[in-house]
């Protein structure tokens, strides 16, 4: 059913630390690897080794430049996947009931057997979290690795989304954001975690942690002692430089 369930007590989701993300795209690769051979249709690529590659991904890493009013600009790496919104607009617009939000843990999923590939859910999502797979003709989205997190065939350490498991900088955290005592909720409270596009009214479960302001640029104390390139050259090389510079059109 595409009616949203009443808000669940358990709200599984991700907390993404923009301060520690180094933009390595390991989460993108881990996500594509796990999800192309597990839940639902494979994440297809077209022309993957050719001149115009294109494919379906459930997680993508953008990079933004933030220019404060004063001081140097700062670069922020920004992973983005489904935010498993409480008021998920992608669910209610679905005409077939393929899109649904789980009542028990709040995960938003697509039942691919019922999906007609009309794309309306992707139109309704402000975050670009859903992509229609060109080969399968059905809508793909982050499952929060629902086939890992409850999977008792995996060692306990692996029962976490593939992106979280693989992140080398510890920038991704998985947990229950409905429980104020959980580690992820504490992290959000401590670091001032925020929602993306709160004005869209989607109430995302996933939270982002802000980057620290960039350190002020300081000229190194030894800098004055480091001589710059000589401008008063002597000898053969200096003569060649002057001679070539004197030619019409020569570099100066």
């Amino acid at each position: 059913m595409t009616q949203l369930p009443p808000p669940s007590d358990v709200k599984l989701g991700l907390v993404i630390d923009l301060d520690t993300c180094v933009g390595c795209h390991a989460c993108v690769v881990a996500c594509k690897g796990w999800n192309t051979e597990n839940y639902g249709a494979a994440l297809s690529d077209s022309d993957p080794y050719g001149a115009d590659p294109s494919g379906t991904f459930l997680n993508r890493v953008h990079s933004y430049e933030v220019q404060p009013e004063t001081g140097p600009a700062q670069q922020v790496h920004f992973p983005k996947s489904c935010l498993h919104c409480e008021d998920a607009p992608c669910v209610t617009v679905c005409p077939t009931g393929a899109s649904y939000k789980r009542a028990e843990d709040g995960i938003v999923l697509v039942n691919e057997d019922a999906c007609i590939g009309c794309s309306l859910c992707a139109w309704a999502c402000p975050y670009g979290a859903r992509e229609l797979d060109a080969a399968a003709g059905v809508m793909k989205k982050c499952t929060l690795c629902v086939d890992r997190i409850y999977n008792e065939n995996l060692p306990e350490v692996d029962r976490t989304p593939a992106c979280v498991r693989t992140c080398p900088s510890g920038a991704r955290h998985f947990g229950d954001l409905g429980d104020p005592e959980s580690a992820v909720s504490q992290l959000v409270a401590e670091r001032g975690g925020f929602d993306l596009m709160p004005e869209q009214g989607t109430k995302p479960v996933n939270k982002y942690l802000p980057p620290r302001p960039r350190d002020a640029d300081e000229i190194d104390i030894l800098a004055p002692l480091l001589a710059p390139v000589a401008t008063d050259g002597k000898g053969l090389v200096a003569w060649i430089d002057r001679a070539l510079s004197a030619l019409p059109g020569g570099a100066r």
């Binding site: 923009l18 430049e65 933030v66 404060p68 922020v76 402000p126 596009m197 709160p198 980057p211």
Partner: peptide, 14 residues
């Protein structure tokens, strides 16, 4: 608002 970084300064897709 899309990136939540607007409070820090002008945000540009890099």
């Amino acid at each position: 608002s899309a990136t939540g970084l607007g409070d820090l300064g002008e945000v540009r897709a890099f």
